[in-house]
Structures are given as structure tokens and as C-alpha cells.
């Protein structure tokens, strides 16, 4: 489904990804772990076409075709989704209308019928249950004044509405208390099917207790330094990342990267 080949990318003059390779097939769950600023979020953002990053080498194939030439909107409509680490607030735009706009954009793209507000209301109520969200969320402006946990749940709600083929979850576990984490994880597990794939970006093993990955990858200094099964995550929890880092690349560069890659 997703094939990332020797991907190099930079923001301004700073090279962040230095030759990433990753293959994700339908039905799989992958976890990408690694220290802060290693390029995990960048990788997710590049796949969905964030304009801040420039791909200098390599390719991203989705269902066998390169998507680097597609706009973010086209990629989204093709079924690629990103649950943002820091979802942006959109004052004035009602959450229900936003969700309906997104849902109908997909329906139009697929040549299927759009839902009017009444039908959509019925549809969205079912989806709310997946993330145990209150109907009142629908009447509020998109993410405005939402707590960290509410924002993350709202991201998973959008995922439930759009049913993407390939979903990146960028630090979806950060800022969640244990109850919210359980709810979000339960939601994601419900959305998992044999014909879709999920890539989780996280630096804690915690989330992986609730969502079991098939593969775990470690990203550091813009490169995949290790891949393995879910037992790798436990090993990381125990030993940290240092034993995987190449000699001579100390914390200093790591910090620099963190400051460039930002959120």
C-alpha cells in the first residue's frame, strides 16, 4: 500500500530525512519510534504533502504510484490521513459542518451521494460513540478551546468519519491521561480492518500496550536504525534509544534537529 524509497527531505537548509525506506501493506499496523527530533513527524507530514518540507531525493509510492506530485487535498481524497500532533483551532467553523464538509468532499470524489445535515447528524452520532464523545462537541468550533485530550479524540473522530486507507497517527498518545488513552486506542482498534493500514508515530511504548503493532521501526537522525516486531518496543522501553545510535552522533545534533523540525 505504502512504499517509501530512499526518501531524503529538508526544511529550509536543514536535511531532516536521510534515506528512509519503509513498506506498509494493507492490514498492517506499524509503529515508528525514536528520540525527539529524529524526523518521525516530518516523515508523516511529507507523506500527506505538508508544504514546509522539500523532498530532495527518493519517492513515496501509494498503491504503486508516486504521490509526491499530488496536492495535499488529492492525497487526502485518495485515502491518506494524518491525525495531527497539534490539531489547529479554526474559530467560527462549527465542528459538525467541518466534519460534514470533509465527509461530503470524499463522497463527491467517490461519485457517491452527499449527506444533508439531517442525515449526517444521524451518521455522526454513531461515530461519536467510537471515541465516546459528547454531542456537544459538534456544536463547538473546530478544536477551539478543546483540551489536549479532546483534540486528539476529535482527530480520531475525523478518522472514523473518513475511513482512510492509510492513516498516520502523529503522537496521538501524547498529552492523554490513561482513560483518554484507552478510549483513543479502543477507537483506533475499532477502525482497523484488513484493507487498511495504520502507522503510529510515538516515542513512548505506552500506546503500544493498547494498539498492538505488527512492526516497530526506530528512526534516528533521519534514518531508520532498526526494525523489528512488537518485542522491539519492549526492548526500547527497557534500554532507551542510545544503544541504537551510531558512534559519534551525540545529543547535540539531536537537539539541533529538534529545533528545526519543530512540532
Amino acid at each position: 500500500m505504502l512504499e517509501i524509497k530512499n526518501l531524503h527531505a529538508r526544511v529550509q537548509d536543514k536535511e531532516i530525512l536521510k534515506g528512509i525506506n519503509l513498506t506498509v501493506r494493507a492490514g498492517e499496523i506499524h509503529a515508528i519510534m525514536g528520540p525527539n527530533g529524529s524526523g518521525k513527524s516530518t516523515l508523516a507530514k511529507i507523506v500527506v504533502g505538508h508544504p514546509s518540507f522539500e523532498v530532495t531525493q527518493g519517492d513515496v509510492l501509494y498503491n504503486g504510484e508516486s504521490i509526491l506530485g499530488l496536492s495535499p487535498q488529492e492525497r487526502a481524497l485518495a485515502g491518506v490521513f494524518l491525525a495531527f500532533q497539534y490539531p489547529v483551532e479554526v474559530p467560527g467553523v462549527n465542528n459538525a459542518s467541518f466534519l460534514r464538509l470533509a465527509y461530503n468532499a470524499k463522497q463527491i470524489h467517490l461519485g457517491q451521494e452527499e449527506l444533508d445535515p439531517l442525515d449526517f447528524d444521524e451518521f455522526i452520532r454513531e461515530k461519536l460513540k467510537i471515541v465516546e464523545m459528547d454531542e456537544r462537541f459538534l456544536d463547538r468550533a473546530v478544536n477551539e478551546g478543546f483540551s489536549g485530550g479532546e483534540k486528539k479524540r476529535n482527530e480520531i473522530l475525523q478518522m472514523a468519519v473518513l475511513e482512510p486507507k492509510l492513516a498516520f497517527l502523529d503522537e496521538t498518545d501524547s498529552g492523554l491521561d490513561i482513560d483518554a488513552l484507552r478510549i483513543v486506542a479502543k477507537g483506533v482498534n475499532q477502525l482497523k480492518r484488513a484493507d487498511n493500514a495504520i502507522v503510529m508515530v510515538t516515542h513512548y511504548q505506552r500506546l503500544l500496550n493498547y494498539i498492538q503493532p505488527d512492526y516497530v521501526h526506530v528512526l534516528a537522525y533521519g534514518q531508520m536504525v532498526k526494525s523489528g516486531g512488537k518485542e522491539l518496543a519492549l526492548e526500547l522501553e527497557e534500554k532507551g534509544y542510545d544503544w541504537l545510535l551510531p558512534e559519534g552522533q551525540g545529543a547535540q545534533e539531536n537537539n539541533q534537529l529538534a529545533s528545526v523540525a519543530g512540532a
Binding site: 495535499p72 494524518l82 489547529v88 462549527n94 464538509l101 468532499a105 473518513l162
Partner: peptide
């Protein structure tokens, strides 16, 4: 904000119009 809309499949013009109407 615009990128957020686009990532959900909503075009820029529609996004601006939604924000302005709000």
C-alpha cells in the same frame, strides 16, 4: 488552518469560505 482542511480533502477555496462565513 488551510493545510488542516486540505488534509481532510477540503479545497482551499472551500476552506476560506467556511472560515470567512464563520
Amino acid at each position: 488552518q488551510l493545510f488542516y482542511f486540505q488534509q481532510r480533502g477540503i479545497g482551499t477555496e472551500e476552506a476560506v469560505s467556511a472560515i470567512i462565513n464563520g
